[in-house]
Write a protein that binds this DNA or RNA. Structure first.
Lengths: 85, 85
DNA sequence: TAGGTATTTAGACAAATGTCTAAATATTAT
DNA sequence: ATAATATTTAGACATTTGTCTAAATACCTA
C-alpha cells in the first residue's frame, strides 16, 4: 500500500490515471498530454506500474498502458476504516 | 488535495492517524508511540495539520491533537470517480 | 522568581524525488 | 541493411523530505 500512496503523491501521475480512465493510451500519447519530456513520463509510468495502478502491454513498437483500479480498494478500505466509529 | 496526498504518503503519519482514531492524544503521547524524536513527530503533526487531517487545541502546557476525517471525503470522491464507468 | 515539563523552531544532513539530456534498445518500413 | 519511430535506461542535478541535535517558547508549580 506504501507504493500506491507514493504513486498517488504526484499531480502528474494522478492526471495520467485520469487520462487512462477514458481509454488505454500509448506512452507517447500520455507524454503529449504534458509539458514534460518522454523520459520523465516513462519514469512516472514506471512508478505507477510498480504500484500496480497501471498495466502495460507491448504492441509492436508501442507500449499501451491501461488503468488498474483494483489496488485502490485497499486505499478505500484504509480510509473507511479511519472513519468508522 | 495535494497536501492530503502528501500527508498520507508516510507510514508514520498514517499510523498517527490511526492512533488518533481511538482517542485524542497529546503531542507527547503520540511521540511515545514511535521510536522517533519529539521534534520529528512535531514536524509530522505539522504536515498533518496543514492537510487538515488533524486539529489541535492547546490545553495548558499540552497540545491535544484530534483526527479530522472530513478532508478524506475529497480523496474518496477522487478514487470513486476514477473507478466509475 | 526559579525550575521543571511540554512542545515547537532552527539549522544541519543524508536520502529520496522529479526533472533533464544523451544514449541504448526495439520495432517498422524503405 | 539503413533509416525512422517509440520507448526506456543511465547519469546528472536541484529540490524536497525525514530525521537529528540544540535552542527557544510556553505553561505550571513550589
Amino acid at each position: 500500500m506504501n507504493k500506491v500512496f507514493k504513486a498517488l503523491n504526484d499531480p502528474t501521475r494522478r492526471e495520467i490515471l485520469h487520462l487512462l480512465k477514458e481509454k488505454d493510451l500509448t506512452a507517447g500519447d500520455i507524454a503529449e498530454a504534458f509539458h514534460i519530456t518522454k523520459p520523465s513520463i516513462s519514469h512516472h509510468l514506471d512508478i505507477l506500474s510498480q504500484a500496480e495502478l497501471v498495466t502495460s502491454e507491448k504492441k509492436g513498437q508501442f507500449v499501451i498502458y491501461s488503468l488498474n483500479t483494483t489496488v485502490l480498494d485497499d486505499i478505500m478500505k484504509w480510509i473507511i476504516n479511519l472513519r468508522a466509529d
